[in-house]
Nucleic acid binder design. Structure first.
Lengths: 346, 346
DNA sequence: CTTCATCACTAGAGCGCGCTAGTAGAGCGC
DNA sequence: GCGCTCTACTAGCGCGCTCTAGTGATGAAG
């Protein structure tokens, strides 16, 4: 690493003084603080002329409303808290649709991500601390007990997680249906050795695992059922590949926990010289936009991110407006998207 | 979509009552509010016994400190604002390292992303509204004027963006060096028709474009210089592919604006049946973890995300502590990572 | 005994804003 | 003139917390 002193004004001068407040604007514009407040809230009751002058003054002295003070003073924050895993490309898709819908209904969004050094509880704490009026959790892995407790204290919408006897709203895809489609398709192609890398405690994993077992049994392949433990990261796909490659024979098809897992698996297989789909077919889950774009052409179970995000925001807002309404579960239909990582068995 | 009423308690009961405050905790624990405050700030001056009792009571009634009130009351927020583009996998890498370093130095991080419906200005406004003590901008595309103005009002660290005559701190990779390595390598493999899809107004694009031209000239390939306009999204790679495929002959190598652009390009080439690297070699830029993992095995210019994030946070904190220190520019060396999307020309 | 330090705790101001309850003044009808 | 309405504005409380300047109790030192 090299370090240089920027060639600009060298010493950057006495900057970053006291942050201007509403009173500063009011004083400079020759009006009361209350009027400035009113104007910045877009409330009626100020003349157009004064309004303009206040905005001009504000811009001139670099005034921006203080979110903290606003939040504190008003009972409403009109803010939704979103917990996500930033590494997950599917979550990026969801975030975009959430923003779009939140804009439409006049809410702000605050993001809080989990990273390896920051668990879900910390991410949630940050959102609650910001006084979000509702929490939208993308594929939460937290315990059902914690989730239930949380939903007692705040409006909570879970995406891609079904909670039995739920006291919270959830929006998800019919996991079983997606898995069934995938297995049916693989079997119709002639596959019999279809294995599943599961998502561990990840959202929807239990349902997918169950559905995989059921679908295999339906096709009379109960004896070929095999589940390799995994999770929702690329790493689990790579590890599963190691396991498979260490054995005598590869299965002819693998149903991965999600797209990330599938990508990890593909990477490891590719490194080992295994041809996809000639030697092994691979199916993902999510259809995150990246999977579609890359030249991988991943066959995967499509979840409608736009719709999931939109519904989550709408449900959250409705929950805020009527906290005592019955908990709802919105279920979207998935759809298998056949691309290039699947084909007939070798 | 189907909708079901969750099978739980049906009506969710009278929930989400008034949020408990410090006073509630104080009253229930039989101490003053000030003491509770002190305990939650981890300040000395309370007995171990009382401390424990207060924590117990807080947990029992579900108290969590209100960030807004905290922020308002204290001059410091110990919060760094990070502006990013959530779609960009490289930004995910950066976010992770920022969190890790922020934890180490005792700062919080607030994220604000740009999405198609939310531009950089709005993302920055949100951060400033949250009273972040410094802003860390991942590859900002805003005008130099706006950036300079912003840096006069707040400590600002830009990642991957060099600002001439800077009054702000920046942390980036030696763009030119990376591009030169890539061109040198391609030429050493025998390529002569090396074209460049540029990043438009994206961070570092100007430098990379310039370096590409210089490197080509150095190899006596001035006449082969060709820059296709693009940006930092997958879409631009796909569009560039369209352009190239509509022509008589493909170039033998393409230097993409970044990994996302390279991925889009690879996808489109693959769909058109063009073999990589046999017919065309492709080089990315960033080395986001996804590029490495996928079975793409993208040849790309590695930027050290861990180090970039770490340095950005450190620089931000140092800037907060000494606002008048000279602006700094930290430059890391990039490194070409040769994988599977490059080879000798056809 | 007094003095002083220390510990454990409290009172209360104020952070920047939203919002309710007001007021001053203009315009109007009678 | 009077009362009325309407527009354009203002006063000031309080949101939940931090933080300074305290208080009272205890114990050790002199």
């Amino acid at each position: 690493m090299t370090e240089q002193q920027a060639s600009g004004d060298g010493v950057t001068g006495a900057r970053h003084g006291r942050r201007p407040t509403m009173s500063d604007v009011a004083e400079k514009a020759g009006v009361s603080r209350a009027l400035v407040s009113l104007i910045f809230r877009n409330a009626p009751g100020a003349s157009e002329q004064t309004r303009q002058r206040v905005f001009d003054v504000a811009k001139e002295i670099g005034y921006r409303p203080d979110t903290a003070a606003r939040t504190l003073a008003s009972s409403r924050t009109r803010t939704l808290g979103v917990m996500l895993t930033i590494r997950n490309p599917f979550h990026a898709d969801l975030v975009e649709s959430c923003y779009a819908e939140a804009d439409r209904v006049g809410y702000d969004i605050v993001l809080s991500t989990t990273v390896p050094t920051r668990d879900e509880e910390r991410a949630v704490d940050a959102l609650v601390g910001h006084r979000c009026e509702a929490l939208i959790l993308f594929g939460p892995k937290m315990s059902a007990a914690y989730l239930t407790q949380l939903s007692r204290e705040h409006p909570v919408v879970a995406i891609s997680r079904k909670v039995p006897d739920a006291t919270l709203d959830s929006v998800h895809t019919a996991e079983a249906k997606g898995v069934r489609q995938a297995v049916d398709y693989l079997v119709s192609q002639g596959h019999r050795d279809v294995i599943h890398i599961d998502g561990g405690a990840g959202p929807g994993s239990a349902e997918r695992r169950k559905a995989y077992r059921a679908a295999m049994r339906k096709h009379g392949l109960a004896e070929r059922i095999r589940v390799i433990p995994g999770n929702h990261t690329e790493d689990s796909g790579m590890r599963a590949a190691e396991v498979l490659l260490s054995e005598d024979a590869l299965p002819t098809a693998v149903l991965a926990a999600n797209d990330r897992c599938a990508l990890g698996l593909l990477g490891a297989l590719h490194k080992a010289g295994v041809k996809v789909p000639q030697e092994v077919s691979v199916v993902g889950y999510d259809d995150s936009r990246v999977a579609m774009l890359s030249h991988i052409g991943l066959t995967t179970v499509h979840q409608n991110a736009d719709e999931l995000g939109r519904l989550a925001v709408r449900t959250a807002v409705e929950r805020i407006e009527s906290p005592n309404a019955p908990a709802r579960e919105l279920v979207l239909d998935p759809e298998l998207r056949v691309r290039d990582t699947t084909g007939p068995p070798r």
